[in-house]
């Protein structure tokens, strides 16, 4: 065994420049850590805009229900504003108006414990919406974000029936003054996009950014050094309706 290693080393003489680079990088990291400024550098560098996304990442959101405050609606308001779905000109019609995210109050009947939590598209690895979609409009991106391609959505609403989280909405009325990066229109189904326009721009989703209680963490589930992965490693987290085996990208802590 040792002979093998020796011969391998002999075949590949040490690359001085590379070794120097590694040394310098290590020194830089050490300095940053020592100063206490740069502890977490975040996910890998941002994807160039002309490159397609890949399965190297899987985006997810961790909701800490113990930090989620009663009566707080900041994430919902931020989502509605960011994506333009709360900007309705008519009187509110809660049964049919679009809801990309909503807050839900749950109560354990036995213990009486209560929780408030945001509920949106859970970005399943095996999304039932995509399974039933007859045109292929519902799909999961390589990086785990579940979307509706409204160019090919025919508005049949099978996906709305299939979703166990009631996360999808149908647009019933013609819309004007859309937001340039968030197109939406009559006759198509829509849901949380995990703010895909922001994610592609290396930014956090609007709900995560808006949460003052730090109850939402966004990150790459495949990167062991991401904040979300660290928290999921050290705390018990749950996926809603785990019995369905959907492997959701949105997880809950404290339920």
């Amino acid at each position: 065994m040792s002979k093998q290693i020796d011969s391998t080393l002999a075949d590949h003489p040490v690359d001085g420049a590379r070794r120097d680079f590694i040394k310098q990088s290590a020194a830089a990291t050490g300095a940053a850590l020592a100063s206490g400024v740069l502890l977490y550098t975040g996910d890998a560098t941002a994807k160039p805009i002309d490159e397609p996304i890949s399965a190297r990442q899987r985006w997810g959101i961790l909701v800490d229900t113990t930090k989620c405050a009663d009566g707080c609606n900041d994430c919902v308001t931020a989502c509605g504003k960011e994506n333009g779905w709360s900007n309705v000109e008519h009187d509110p019609r809660p049964k049919t108006d679009a809801q990309w995210i909503r807050t839900v109050e749950i109560r354990n009947k036995l213990t009486g414990s209560e929780h408030s939590l945001p509920l949106m598209c859970q970005h399943c690895e095996n999304p039932p919406c995509a399974d039933v979609c007859p045109t292929g409009a519902s799909f999961r991106r390589e990086d785990g974000i579940v979307l509706v391609d409204k160019h090919i959505c025919i508005g049949c609403r099978y996906c709305m029936m299939a979703c166990p989280y009631k996360a999808r909405s149908f647009v019933h009325e013609a819309i004007e003054n859309q937001i340039p990066y968030a197109p939406r229109g009559k006759g198509t189904v829509e849901s949380c996009t995990m703010c895909v326009h922001r994610v592609d721009d290396d930014r956090d989703p609007a709900c995560v950014e808006a949460c003052n209680h730090k109850a939402l963490v966004f990150g790459d589930l495949k990167d062991p050094n991401s904040e979300i992965s660290k928290q999921m490693r050290t705390h018990t987290t749950k996926e809603l309706r785990a019995d369905l085996g959907l492997n959701t990208g949105v997880r809950y802590k404290g339920l």
Binding site: I175, G185, G187, T188
Partner: peptide, 12 residues
């Protein structure tokens, strides 16, 4: 234009 903004900065 049923879905896309037909003016820059629409809706904002």
């Amino acid at each position: 234009w049923d879905c896309h903004a037909s003016q820059p900065g629409g809706g904002q």
